[in-house]
Design a protein around this nucleic acid. Structure first.
Lengths: 230, 230
DNA sequence: TCAAAAGTGTTTCACTTACACCCATGA
DNA sequence: TCATGGGTGTAAGTGAAACACTTTTGA
């Protein structure tokens, strides 16, 4: 029985999301150098090495292929359909990662030369392998998860105006949200703290207070049975 | 790079839950015939064959090792720590399954001879590999999931008295639940239908109506945006 | 007629929803 | 002083939680 499974390879793929108020949600894709699917866009990823854990593999590949270090990473799903790779049997453990895009502007800027690029999820290219399906699942997971886990903050700057958070939610959930009720709810959790600073004057309207996500407080609340829900 | 990953093996493990009002939640374990962990209890599972999907692998192993066919199966998590198997690098895709225990009494009965057995999760033996950890995650998932998906019904008979459902929830959530409010809520969803039959007279108290989970109606409601929540 | 379990009505309370007005800033 | 966006008070509506009483069965 072991012989029959000798030829299955193990890979990881990473779906890394970023956010900007202008572009909405974006994802990191790389342009494939070699066949199959040469020059096509694909999720960053690759084979798992013998000595490394799955998470380490993902992080290594992200570093190598896109120069990215994520601040949130979770296992998404393992895709193992026998013919998802035309060359041989490959199962892929997909991970979803979140980063603050502003830290990786370069990636976003170097559109042509580099082979790693941000793509707004509204304007995706054709993807290699079953990566379209994997990405779709990741988007679903992200949309579902912001309801019950405060992962939205991973996509924002360390200090952010409340309106950024609000915009993030309305983009992700694709609906307008009531500003008053949203802020009442989020603030009632007690997991945000004012930094004391105000947002940069953009030339329009009143500057808003800047907030910071209080990780310590959140962990404390979790222990006490708190449940984030929006 | 491909060479370095040649020796990683791919396996699946299955956590199959059953339920009875007497024992509560039970799980299928098998006694290992060969080293490592010879004679220790472990989750049913094994290596994935070249031509089969991950789900097919799980179902085949369950059939072979315990004679079980589950009526619900979902991928749980992929465990890939480098030294989770003392022999070699093995990553395991764990699946959680649910069955109606009364269909597999044999398993439960043949305690000594057979090497597959039901164990109440309150009375677990020492487990091989990292199976304790895997099982713990499965239990968490089950507990979390009955809140927002009607998977509890998979554990009950096709026709069941309301009290069975109620007891299942109170066992799983480990708290007493208000009979009145629970039934009001569940029935308000419209996913249960009366069969017209009454429960067997057990000798005590008034017999209750039997109910059946209406899968068609549930799917219909899902399309209309219905969300199960208890 | 009593014990045990099923079945149901109604009030209370909390939270969500909806709506409207005021404040600070730059042009 | 106007446009733009930030900040907050409160009434109305909805649904969950709490509680108690009635019904059906076997002993």
């Amino acid at each position: 029985m072991q012989n029959k499974s000798l030829s299955i390879k193990v890979a990881t793929d990473a779906i890394v999301f970023g956010y900007s108020p202008q572009e909405g949600i974006s994802v990191v894709l790389i342009s494939r150098k070699y066949p199959p699917f040469q020059h096509a866009w694909a999720l960053p990823g690759g084979f798992v090495l013998n000595e490394e854990s799955l998470e380490e593999a993902v992080q290594r590949e992200l570093e190598e292929e896109a120069g990215i270090r994520v601040n949130y990473l979770e296992q998404l799903f393992t895709f193992g359909h026998p013919d998802r790779d035309p060359r041989q049997r490959v199962i892929s453990v997909a991970y979803m990662g979140l980063v603050n895009t502003s830290r990786y502007q370069e990636l976003k800027a170097s559109t042509d030369a580099a082979h790693a690029r941000w793509f707004p999820i509204k304007k995706l290219p054709v993807l290699a392998f079953d990566h379209k399906q994997i990405l779709a699942m990741a988007i679903d997971r992200l949309r579902a998860k912001i309801h019950y886990q405060p992962i939205g903050f991973e996509l924002l700057d360390k200090e952010f105006p409340f309106s950024d958070l609000e915009k993030l939610y309305s983009v992700l959930l694709d609906k307008t949200i009531n500003r008053r009720n949203f802020s009442k709810k989020i603030l009632s959790f007690g997991i945000l703290e004012e930094t004391g600073n105000m947002s940069e004057r953009t030339g329009k309207g009143r500057p808003g207070k800047l907030y910071r996500f209080n990780t310590k407080r959140y962990r404390q609340l979790l222990k006490e049975g708190f449940h984030f829900e929006i």
